[in-house]
Write a protein that binds this DNA or RNA. Structure first.
Lengths: 153, 153
DNA sequence: GGAATATAGTTAGCTATGCTAACTAAATTC
DNA sequence: GAATTTAGTTAGCATAGCTAACTATATTCC
């Protein structure tokens, strides 16, 4: 197993510097890309929730809230907005009358893919200035961070 | 000079895949870290604007809005909030009565540094699970992306 | 079986952040 | 000195986050 730096040995200064720059870079990257999402008529929170449904299948409201790291009332409103735009449909759980099953409509799937396409094309057009090597580095680093996020408490 | 992929040759599929995962990872990373910022009593937009002032010195409202990529009315309200909390002070420009000069107060500088510390410690505590090699990879990739952002139109 | 408790979601109401449209006030141009 | 431009504000709308308090259904426990 690879050597791991754990919380028992406090992290070296280098980690703080990386954390700081990573944070600032992530903020400014998203601030730009977010505007593309808004062009679809749905805000980023709705978009992100819809993408969980499209790629992860039907979910209850609580599961969606947990996946998106927001509280149930917040997700309740996001889902209400998606339902109003007919991007998701909601059915009652026959086993448990308190639960709802939320699933994307064909319209929802279509809108997600279009928005995703628009956003990715925008980001990709800027990543296109990178060399193949740099792109590979960004790709690898993204996977590393995605793993950190999965282990996040 | 290294081979560059330019907009003249459309980007390969790989770029889209990286763009997509980068976007999703950035969203989820920030969603977690944002909660630490809120713990300081000021929201992320105020925090970010304050950091521009602390590291970049006094600015007019328009300059701040441009730096933060928001419209003037939005920045007007952010600055009003910072002023209400006595984190910035505002003086009129003696040369041009329409312009305002916004600068951080000592209290603002202190709060920024504390919040930054808290947020960075939080992020760093999770980056601490990485090996030195992985951390270096994330660091390098962050610099690459920061460069892309600087060149962004 | 029925009361107490736990769980899933909603409603109400607050704050913050984004926008556009329309305004005020100061500076500049003609 | 009138017209225009520029800097910032105000008003009003929508999204998105929260907590507190509510409803309705399930479960537990006597």
């Amino acid at each position: 197993m690879a050597k791991k730096i754990t919380k028992q040995n406090p992290p070296p200064l280098e980690v703080f510097s990386v954390a700081d720059r990573l944070h600032s870079t992530a903020i400014h990257l998203l601030r730009r890309v977010r505007k593309q999402d808004v062009a679809s008529g749905e805000g980023p929170a709705r978009f992100s929730a819809l993408s969980v449904l499209v790629f992860g299948g039907a979910k209850t409201l609580g599961e969606l809230a947990a996946a998106e790291q927001v509280k149930p009332p917040t997700m309740s409103r996001i889902v209400a907005g998606l339902a109003r735009s007919k991007l998701v449909e909601i059915t009652a759980d026959p086993q448990d009358g308190r639960r709802m099953s939320i699933r994307p409509t064909p319209r929802g799937v279509k809108l997600l893919h279009e928005g995703r396409q628009r956003r990715i094309e925008y980001l990709a057009s800027h990543l296109a200035e990178l060399t193949a090597q740099e792109l590979a580095q960004v790709a690898e680093s993204t996977e590393i961070l995605a793993r950190v996020l999965r282990n996040w408490t």
